[in-house]
């Protein structure tokens, strides 16, 4: 028990260290996450708009689920070698599937009657996408990013194995920081993941289009 309590004095004594490591940690998580968004959202949205590639979206997700991040890193060390790039590739591969499949689902699952009405009134495919599919799909697209963000931030811990720093440096280095340090680092990462999750929860609420929010609150009552 005293070890857990010991974690808090450790945090106070090592604020500077933890903050630096947090900075590294966020950079290591953020770059792969942004890359996954930049690639996954457009591909997913496009496939959903065309109602094609369900197979692709689903298989990518399943492969993503089947490969634990630790195994990914181990495999990648074999290919790319140790280092920051290696860790980021692993995290990208982790972040990409949920973003892709949520973006696909978000657009693909929009009521066909709605898109049929939109096309029937003379909207061009681009207008259907921008005026109907994206606004209505946005909350689900963001939900995918949220899942990946939490996954990336928590998994970045093991990036240390690939030698790229971050809070994993503290957590996986009991020799230098003691048990208090390990636990302090773990709590810190957990809190970071929760903060990221909550930030996206907020974004999610704001992103729901007004009429749809009405619907949600009406149903909730």
């Amino acid at each position: 028990m005293h070890v857990i309590f010991g974690a808090f004095p450790f945090m106070i004594d090592n604020v500077a260290l933890l903050l630096t490591k947090t900075g590294d940690h966020l950079v290591i998580s953020l770059i792969p996450l942004l890359a996954a968004i930049a690639l996954g959202v457009p591909i997913g949205v496009w496939l959903g708009h065309a109602h094609r590639g369900e197979f692709l979206a689903v298989s990518v997700t399943n492969i993503g689920r089947a490969l634990p991040s630790l195994a990914l890193i181990a495999i990648l060390i074999g290919f790319v070698g140790i280092g920051m790039l290696n860790a980021m590739i692993a995290l990208f591969l982790l972040a990409f599937p949920p973003i892709l499949s949520y973006a696909f689902q978000a657009v693909d699952s929009i009521d066909r009657d709605l898109t049929r009405a939109a096309r029937g009134m003379g909207m061009s495919p681009g207008q259907v996408l921008l005026k109907v599919e994206l606004p209505l799909g946005l909350p689900m697209i963001i939900a995918g990013i949220r899942t990946s963000a939490v996954l990336t931030v928590s998994s970045a811990t093991i990036a240390t194995i690939a030698g790229s720093g971050g809070l994993g440096d503290v957590i996986l280095n009991q020799v230098a920081y003691g048990m208090e340090g390990v636990i302090a680092g773990a709590i810190w990462v957990a809190v970071l993941a929760i903060l990221v999750d909550q930030a996206f929860a907020l974004l999610l609420r704001v992103s729901a289009p007004a009429g749809v929010r009405q619907l949600q609150s009406a149903n909730a009552m």
Partner: peptide, 16 residues
């Protein structure tokens, strides 16, 4: 299509 009125079941109104 822009010269044809189109109405469907469940109205097809845009919820947003």
């Amino acid at each position: 299509r822009r010269t044809i009125g189109y109405a469907i079941q469940q109205s097809g109104l845009f919820p947003h």
